[in-house]
Design a protein around this nucleic acid. Structure first.
Length: 546
RNA sequence: GCCCUCGUAGCUCAGUCGGAUAGAGCGACCGCCUCCUAAGCGGUAGGCCGCAGGUUCGAUUCCUGCCGAGGGCGCCA
C-alpha cells in the first residue's frame, strides 16, 4: 500500500476512535509546499472542528494523540501547526518505497490508472473544413486533442480519435467553384476562397475531374499530411455526407420530433433549445429545405454516443456559442450533458521575434500548420502548443521555438533524458553490473536532490489523473519541466559514477536514474514528444542531432 | 446589450476543486567546467495576484459589481 492510503486509513481510524461521524467528510491529505510542514499534511481537524463546534487546535491534539499510538509506517514525527494543521514528518524510507514502486511499474505502468475501466471515449478534434490547409491555430487543437486521448488511455479508457469532415454544404460548393474558376482563369465568386493555395491546387487539378470531389480529396490529403508530421493519427474520418446517404440525419430529426424537442415556424424546423438553457431556439432545417450546420453535427454526436460512453470535443474559441445548443440537443435525445465534455481552445497568435506574423513568407497567405512544423520541428511544436492552459490565448514565437537554446524548454526536458542515457552507457562501459533493486541498498539515498526526484515521481500519478479529469495536458508539460529541473540539479550535485563514489552509492543512484527515466518517458509520451537518447550541439550551437 | 476566456515579477506564463512564507522560464546582475554532455548548476534583484465589496477561522483561489484585452452572438460553416 502506498503511503498516502495508509495515512488516510490511519486518520480515519483515529477519527473513528474519537467517535467522529465520517460519512460526509473526505480526508484531505496534501503535500505542503514548505518542507518545514513535513512530508504530508491534513486539515481534517480544521474542517471537522467547525462542525463539532470545537477549538481546532484542541481537536487536532486529540487526533494526534491517537495517531501517535498507532504509529503508521515510516512515521518520524506528528505535529500540530498553524490554526490546526496536522503535519506528518516521515523517514526517508517512504521515498525509497516510491523508488521500488516506480521501477517495478516501469514506463508501461507507472502513473497508469484503471478508473476508465475500459469505458469507451471518443476524442474529437481538429475537424477542420476540407476547403483549405490547416493553419497554426489548428495545430493547438491537434496537439491538445491527441494528448488528451493519450491521457485517457493511460487512465484505462478505450479511446478513439475522431475527425469530423464537413464534406457537403455551402462552403464546399464555394470551394469547388473557386477551384474551378481559378483553373479556367475565370473570376472567383464573391464569397469564394482566394488564398495562394487555391492557385497552387487549381494548377495541380487535372482538367477532366469533378472539382468538388478532387478538391475534397486534395484538402483531406493536406490535412492528413500536416497531422502525420506531428505524429497524429485518427481512427475515424467521419463524413457528413455519409449521414445523408445512410438516412441518419432524418432519423435524428424523427427522434427529436418524438422527444417533442422541435417545432416548425416560418417554413423552417427549429430545435427548442431554450428548454435546456439556450437563449434562443435554433434552426435545424432551413425554409429552403437545406440542413443547417447544427443538424448533421447533432446527428454525428448521436452516432458517437452509439459508439462510446463518453465524448470529448475540442473546439476553437469561435465555437463556444455552440456548447449550449449541442448539450441541449443531446439532452433532448436522452443523453447526459456531462457525458459530452467540450474543451475550448483560445486563439494562437503567431510571432517572429516578438512581431506578429500574419502572412506566410513563402505564400504570402495565412501561415499553414505544415510550415510551422517545418520551421520548428514536431517535438518543439507539440511541447510549445501544450505548454499553456488552452484557456489562455497563446503567443507562438516561431523564432524562439525554432531555436535550440535554453529559452526552449522542450530541449531542456529532452536533454535530461539524454543525460540519463549517457550515464547508463558510461556505467555499462565501466562494466558495472547493477544488482536487482531488491539487492540494492536504497537507504544511502538521502541527499535532498535525490529525495526531491522521488517526491516528484510520487506525484506523477496524481498529476495524470487530474490532467485527465480537467482535460488539461499542460499540467503534464509543466510537471516534465519541473522534473527535468530536479534531475539536472541531481546530476550536478550527485555523481553516479566515479572513483570516489562507493559502489553501494553508485548502484543505488543507478536505480534512481532508472526511475527518473521512467518519469521522463511517461510524461513525454503523454505529450507525444520524443525522448532522444543523445543530443549533441554543433559548433554554431544551432543544430542538434538526436 | 448578452455569452465565453483571460488579467499574477520587466517579458512569457504556471499555481487557484479555500489553506501556512505566491512559483518557473526568459531578461538583468554575481558565481560554477582537471569531474557521468555547461543544451547544465548555484545565488541576487524583481509582486496592492486588475479594482472594490461580500462569504469565513482563513480568499490570488468562491460570489457580486466594475475596469481592461481577446473571441462569439446568422434560416453561414
Amino acid at each position: 500500500m502506498d503511503v498516502r492510503s495508509s495515512l488516510i486509513e490511519a486518520i480515519q481510524k483515529a477519527l473513528q476512535k474519537l467517535t467522529v461521524d465520517l460519512s460526509f467528510e473526505e480526508i484531505h491529505l496534501e503535500r505542503p509546499a514548505n518542507p518545514e510542514h513535513g512530508d504530508w499534511s491534513t486539515n481534517v481537524a480544521l474542517a471537522i472542528s467547525k462542525k463539532l463546534n470545537r477549538n481546532p487546535r484542541d481537536f487536532a491534539s486529540e487526533v494526534t494523540e491517537v495517531l501517535i499510538h498507532q504509529s503508521p509506517d515510516h512515521m518520524k514525527k506528528i505535529e500540530i501547526a498553524g490554526p490546526g494543521f496536522i503535519n506528518f514528518k516521515l523517514e526517508n524510507s517512504w521515498l525509497h518505497d516510491v523508488l521500488n514502486q516506480v521501477v517495478d511499474a516501469g514506463t508501461d505502468n507507472w502513473a497508469k490508472h484503471k478508473i476508465g475501466n475500459n469505458k469507451k471515449v471518443i476524442v474529437e478534434f481538429v475537424s477542420a473544413n476540407p476547403t483549405g490547409p490547416l493553419h497554426a491555430g489548428h495545430g493547438r487543437g491537434a496537439c491538445f486533442g491527441d494528448s488528451v486521448a493519450r491521457l485517457y488511455q493511460r487512465c484505462g479508457y478505450s479511446v478513439q480519435r475522431d475527425f469530423y469532415i464537413n464534406d457537403r454544404g455551402t462552403q464546399m460548393k464555394l470551394y469547388a467553384e473557386s477551384l474551378a474558376a481559378e483553373a479556367s482563369d475565370e473570376k472567383i465568386p464573391e464569397d469564394g476562397y482566394r488564398g495562394e493555395y487555391i492557385k497552387e491546387w487549381a494548377a495541380e487539378m487535372p482538367p477532366d475531374v469533378d472539382p468538388f470531389e478532387w478538391g475534397y480529396q486534395r484538402a483531406l490529403r493536406s490535412h492528413r499530411e500536416a497531422l502525420e508530421a506531428l505524429n497524429i493519427y485518427f481512427d475515424n474520418w467521419f463524413s457528413e455526407r455519409s449521414m445523408v446517404a445512410s438516412g441518419a440525419i432524418e432519423e435524428t430529426l424523427t427522434d427529436l420530433r418524438s422527444a417533442e424537442a422541435v417545432f416548425e415556424s416560418d417554413g423552417a424546423v427549429w430545435l427548442r433549445s431554450t428548454n435546456w438553457g439556450d437563449d434562443k431556439d435554433r434552426v435545424l432545417v432551413k425554409s429552403d429545405g437545406e440542413y443547417t450546420y447544427l443538424l448533421p453535427d447533432v446527428t454525428y454526436h448521436r452516432d458517437k454516443f452509439k459508439r462510446a460512453d463518453l465524448l470529448v470535443n475540442v473546439w476553437g474559441a469561435d465555437h463556444h456559442g455552440y456548447i449550449t445548443r449541442m448539450h441541449a440537443a443531446m439532452s433532448a435525445l436522452g443523453h447526459k450533458p456531462e457525458d459530452l465534455k467540450i474543451a475550448i481552445t483560445q486563439m494562437v497568435r503567431l510571432q517572429r521575434d516578438g512581431q506578429e506574423v500574419k502572412l506566410s513568407k513563402r505564400t504570402g497567405d495565412i501561415v499553414e500548420l505544415a510550415e510551422v512544423i517545418e520551421e520548428v520541428g514536431s517535438d518543439a511544436a507539440r511541447f510549445t502548443y501544450l505548454l499553456l492552459s488552452v484557456d489562455s490565448s497563446q503567443n507562438f514565437d516561431l523564432e524562439l521555438v525554432a531555436q535550440q537554446v535554453n529559452e526552449n524548454p522542450v530541449f531542456y526536458v529532452q536533454y535530461a533524458h539524454a543525460r540519463i542515457h549517457s550515464i547508463m552507457k558510461k556505467s555499462q562501459e565501466a562494466g558495472i553490473e547493477r544488482p536487482s533493486i531488491a539487492e540494492t541498498d536504497l537507504s544511502v539515498l538521502n541527499h535532498p536532490s535525490e529525495l526531491a526526484i522521488l517526491r516528484s515521481l510520487q506525484e506523477l500519478p496524481d498529476m495524470v489523473l487530474r490532467s485527465t479529469q480537467e482535460v488539461a495536458p499542460h499540467r503534464i508539460t509543466n510537471w516534465s519541466r519541473d522534473f527535468a529541473s530536479l534531475f539536472h540539479s541531481f546530476y550536478h550535485d550527485c555523481r553516479v559514477l566515479g572513483e570516489d563514489i562507493s559502489i553501494t552509492v553508485t548502484e543505488a543512484r543507478l536505480w534512481l536514474v532508472e526511475a527518473a527515466r521512467v518519469g521522463l518517458v511517461v510524461s513525454l509520451d503523454l505529450l507525444g514528444v520524443s525522448a532522444p537518447t543523445e543530443m549533441w550541439r554543433n559548433e554554431e550551437g544551432e543544430e542538434f542531432h538526436g
